[in-house]
Design a protein around this nucleic acid. Structure first.
Lengths: 130, 130
DNA sequence: CTGGATCCTTTTCGATACTG
DNA sequence: CAGTATCGAAAAGGATCCAG
């Protein structure tokens, strides 16, 4: 049980490094960020409105915030075309794509364990009742 | 672009399935859930208080909520020892461990891209200034 | 069309007090 | 020790209006 061999999650002995990694995880694990990565990964370069439509159910405010944050983190490239009406396009950077790939495992896991999670929830509910 | 071959993120054509997967992603992408998986994966079976100490900075309320939710989803097994004082132990289920493994890629990604993210943020800040 | 700014509701979360 | 219950602060998020 205390076997450190081939450990799934890397251990960070340096507390400062650990904190930084946690911060990145928090940032990147954001709901809308993940969905934005998904649609940009699937559809390539997209306009602001298109990203929102493909994500679905996201307010304009959150879309702006999410894309700005992703741009700030170097996950997306934002291209402004100086025309009227304005045309702004977003596309994943290499780093953004690599994050999408890293998340792929989680996505697949979610699909594969959907049924078992539902079953566990149901069992838990029944277990909790009188 | 509509090529289904070796796609990083699976496309879900069924909207209901898509929604379920998103819900699961949202659930497991939770900050505390991920950290709880990490410490339980590293240390094996732990008592309630131990989990909180190892995660660090989590309130008792959030710890209870997180562990209950994980139990409900079938990620952790909760064992109550009927002694005084009470002793409750938590350990990952097989499903919990497999989720930890699925997240491993993200964890590694965060470590590897830490510097580039910091650089991107700095560049973005300077780009935004007058 | 792409946002910024504002208001307001909902949710989240920590602090605290209390129980078996 | 391992929670539950409650309160209030704080943050997230939606709706709306406005500008370039």
């Amino acid at each position: 049980m205390a076997e450190p061999a081939r450990h799934p999650i890397p251990e960070n002995l340096d507390p400062a490094l650990e904190m930084l990694v946690r911060e990145i995880i928090e940032r990147v694990a954001d709901k809308w960020t993940m969905l934005a990565i998904e649609v940009l990964d699937e559809h390539g370069r997209l306009r602001f409105t298109q990203v929102g439509e493909l994500i679905g159910g996201i307010s304009q405010k959150m879309l702006t915030k999410t894309l700005r944050q992703m741009e700030s983190d170097g996950l997306v490239l934002r291209t402004i075309h100086p025309v009227i009406p304005p045309r702004v396009e977003y596309e994943l950077t290499d780093m953004g794509r690599s994050l999408g790939a890293a998340f792929c495992g989680v996505w697949i896991w979610a699909e594969e364990h959907r049924d078992r999670i539902e079953a566990a929830r149901k069992a838990f509910r029944e277990r909790s009742l009188p």
